[in-house]
């Protein structure tokens, strides 16, 4: 266990250290403040939640918010489908699968886009411009849609 822990800690410290210079200074001020606040009140889950929320609202660029909205939309659509499946049964199973996996797939693709365009992760994606990430995203999504529509017959 010990080496594993060390490795994990090492990886984390690296990523945080690399991310701090990359992120915007005015932005990074706020997380540090909220993080200190949350660290103090970390025993209280409600505080953590509000902390996260505030952090998010203040700290997220416009386009990331756009992505998040889209992801939330996908989660709702997917959740509705899943709920319907539980309630009404999954009779045309392929339809359910393709419908549900379309949202799931779209969700992960969007999440990937979000991660790739997140400047905090720039260290991980050195050769990946945002335009390239977006093009990749469109490419992946189109494959996904093709498969889903094909599969639902």
């Amino acid at each position: 266990m010990a080496p594993k822990k060390n490795a994990a800690a090492g990886a984390n410290s690296q990523s945080t250290s690399s991310s701090t210079p990359a992120t915007n200074t005015p932005v990074s001020n706020k997380p540090s403040s909220t993080s200190t606040a949350s660290r103090n009140a970390s025993t209280n889950p409600q505080d953590i939640a509000t902390g996260i929320w505030e952090n998010y609202v203040n700290n997220t660029p416009q386009r990331v918010k756009l992505i998040d909205t889209f992801m939330l939309f996908l989660v709702i659509v997917g959740g509705l489908q899943f709920l319907y499946c539980i309630l009404a049964g999954n009779y045309p199973f392929n339809a359910f699968l393709s419908g549900f996996s379309a949202t799931v797939g779209q969700f992960v693709l969007t999440a990937s886009l979000r991660i790739q365009t997140n400047s905090a992760n720039a260290a991980d994606f050195k050769q990946l411009s945002h335009e390239r990430a977006f093009a990749d995203f469109v490419f992946g999504s189109m494959i996904l849609h093709f498969f889903c529509v094909n599969f639902i017959n």
Partner: peptide, 10 residues
């Protein structure tokens, strides 16, 4: 191994 990275996720 604690090597989770966004790259892996993507």
């Amino acid at each position: 191994m604690g090597r989770f990275s966004p790259r892996l996720y993507v």
